[in-house]
Every structure is written in C-alpha cells, then in structure tokens.
Design a protein around this nucleic acid. Sequence first.
RNA 1: GGAGAGAUGGCCGAGUGGCUUAAGGCGCAGGUUUGCUAAACCUGUGUAGGGGUAACUCUACCGAGGGUUCGAAUCCCUCUCUCUCCGCCA
Length: 433
Amino acid sequence: MLDIKLIREQPEFVRERLATRGAGDEAKIDEILSLDEQRRKLLNEVEALKATRNRVSKEIGALMAQKKPDEAEARKAETRSLGDQIAALDKTIAETETARDGLMLRLPNLPHATVPVGKTAADNVEVSHWGEKPRFAFEPKSHVDLCESLGLVDFARGTKLSGSGFLLYTGWGARLERGLIQFLLDLHSREHAYTEVSPPYVVKQECMIGTGQFPKAADQAYAVQEGEDASTLGKLYLVPTAETPVANIHREELLKPEQLPIRYCAYSPCFRAEAGAAGVGTRGMIRVHQFDKVELIKVVTPETGYDELEGMMANAEKVLQLLGLHYRVLLLCTGDMGFTSAKTYDIEVWAPGQNDYLEVSSCSNCEDFQSRRMNLRCKPESGTNFFPHLLNGSGTALARLFVALIETYQQEDGSVKIPPALQPYVHSDRIGA
RNA sequence: GGAGAGAUGGCCGAGUGGCUUAAGGCGCAGGUUUGCUAAACCUGUGUAGGGGUAACUCUACCGAGGGUUCGAAUCCCUCUCUCUCCGCCA
C-alpha cells in the first residue's frame, strides 16, 4: 500500500510513476484524494463534537461530586443529542475510509527510478548472463519425453488424482525433487546465512492482503473449507508461495533496529489456480497448479534495501552456478513487474528441450509496500517509527529447475547425469541406463 | 468437542461508571552528584489520525466488534485468541 501522505502531497509524482506500469491505475488517484479530503473534513466536525462531549461530561461529573443533581440533569439534557450526531458522523467516516482503503489496496507499488519503462516482457533488459547454451551431438529431448522414458513423473496418474496441472513424481524423479529441496535449503541456510523456517502451508486472509495477493488477485488462490462447513470458506487459503507466510512472520510487530536485517529461507509447495491460463503451455511441468519452491525473504532498513536486493540476486544465481546451468538475468520493465514490487530481477535458466529460457527466480524489493499493509514497523533509537523494506526472491522454483536440469544433462543413451554438487543429495551420479 | 481461567503501553503490572490526563515498576533517553564504573536522585519517554509556520492543541486506542449512558479499561451481548484440565486423534 502506498503512503496516503505521499498521494496527498505529491499526486503528480504518484500518477506519473503509476502510469509507467501502463495499467491505468493513475486514474484512481483523483477518487482517492476526493474520499480522503471528505474523510478529513468529517473528522474535523466529529472531533469538535467529541471534544464538546468530553468537556461537558467532565463538568457533569464535577456537579455530581458537588451534590448538585439538578444542575447535572440540566447539562445532560443539553448534550443528549450529541451522541446521535457523533454516531452518524462516525458511521459516514468509517464508510468513507473503507472506500478509500479499498482503492488504495488495489493500487500497485511505484516502480523504482532505476527500473526501465516498458510495456511487456519484450521491454525487459538483460543485465547479465552466465555460462553458455550446451551443445548436443544429438537432438535433445523434451523433459516430458525424458520423464516418461525414465519414469520420473507419471503425468497421467497425476491428472487422475487431482486434475491437469498436478504432478505425481515417481522413483528417481521423486528423489531428485527431494534432493533439490534439501540442496537449496542447505545452500542458503549454511552458506548464505539465512535462517531456515518451515511455515504453515495455509494462511489467513489478512496474510494474503499483507503480501499483496489480495484483494486484487484473489481469483488465483485456492480457498480452504473445513469439511462441509461452508461458513469456514474464505478464512484460510493455500499458500501461493512461501513468501506469504514467511514475509508475514513479523506482521503487526514493532521491531528493534538491532533485529535487522532479518533473513529467512523456507521451502513450501506453491498452489496457484492459474485462472485464465488454461491451455497455455500447460504440457509438461512448466506451468502447473502445484510446485515446490525455496524462497528467500529479507526484512531490512530502507537504507540497505537495494544493496540487499543485489545480495539476494547473488544468492539465487549461486544455485544455477553450482548446478552448472546456463542462465540470463533480466531487469524487469515497469509494465512487466509484479503488483507489490518496486524493482524486480528475473533469472531465466536455459532449457535445451524447450529451446527457450524458463523463469526460475524472481527477486524483488517491495520497499515498504508490504510492511505498510501488514503494519510491520521498526522503532529507531531516536525519531519516528519507520516501515522496513521487505524483499523476496525465489531461491529457486523447482519444477522448472527440474526441467532445465534433466534437459541440460541428458545423454545420447537416454540417461541423465547428475552434477557433482547434487550427487550427495541424490546418492548417484546418473539416472537411468 | 466439554469445563474453567485469562487478554491493559516496548515489557511487567494495578485499576468494578466521573480526582484515570491509565497508578507503580522495568527498560530507554537526558540531567545532577561522582576519580572511573556502578549506585542514588530529578526530568522525560506509547501508537495512529486531524489542525497549526511553530510552541502547541484536539480526537481515537486497555484482544476485536456491537450495546447501555451525558460519560465505559470498568456494566451487557457477540466473536477471536491464549493458558489449564478432560475427551478424541497422527
């Protein structure tokens, strides 16, 4: 959520920054300002009435203490109607505030000044790359064929169990998936100094609001219902990413500066309804309703936010370097960035069987956008409280990493080599043949 | 699921309708005293939102939401969460 004071004091700046996203959000600013002004006007009125009521009530108390009940009764009669006026105004103010905040919650974050202005993914800027596309003496197969021939994923039975977009990993495939999760958690917790946490996989609605999935993208979430009790629907949601539970860990807390920076890493499955994406590249493992991911989260001071983002990128890139996978790094343009982010880098890994790059990581600084939504604050040694910066990054998403890995390391005989860094986790240097 | 006890500032903790402008303590900041440290003493110290160039001032907040009242931390109703015990359960 943006700071209402910023919108109030620099509406032109906010409009200009929102416009760079190309989604038309800047059109809502006038309505927000109008509601905000109305709210403040009413607030002035009701507070004056309340001040009067407080003063008179105190006088009545004094009269009672002086044993002057007649005078007290007279004052009571005078102020009897005040309560109704106050109640009516309070109600209008609450409605105005709800309307204002409803609009505010749907406004995306302002892009950082260093983010390139653009409309689509085509306008993203490649800032670096690592390694090279592997060369094959044969025609590389798709991961779908490799999974079937090696028995790594049973696509048909996954669909039988849960519908399309759900995967049943089997045999070496299941072991490889588990090994990758453990490899990633070990790397980030032991080498990169993130505190490992294991969060719940369902969260309350307010957590979804806190990290920005709700209210705007509510149709992308899976809602949970307890048994047949429909009244429980809408309270808990399957996590779309570990970012949601982990970034909310300190929601509504007042942190001490010496607690920062906080760095967490966490594994979770990620559940995404992918509404509106049916039939788009759904074959195989590239776009599914449930996938595994190891997520990185940081809570830091605003001064260090962007240095921490670069550090997080280095941590995520290290994954692909250790696995020997070619990748490129993109700085997302204003039009392609997520709702909550002020600046985002994507890491795309090369998948030879797809002849394309696949997004396996997205690292963002959301600045104070999320901490405002969850009322996460920090109390400095002196001065007023501030909202810390919240960063999140995939370290990394698994299904696509799995794809890139087996497509990159496939051999002519149909087997798949396991890179050395992963061998202790898979307990083998090769799958198949 | 059943029974009982609770929820008060950064923390602990008093407070059963109006001298509460939330006592007192801890912590924190400044000051006095002092060879240094410590201690003692004094002063200050919540959050959010309005108004004001400013000093300052007003309003709200005692788990959440309603209600009674001129006035609610305090009385009434509903809900949430925590703790203890019992039952069920991986």
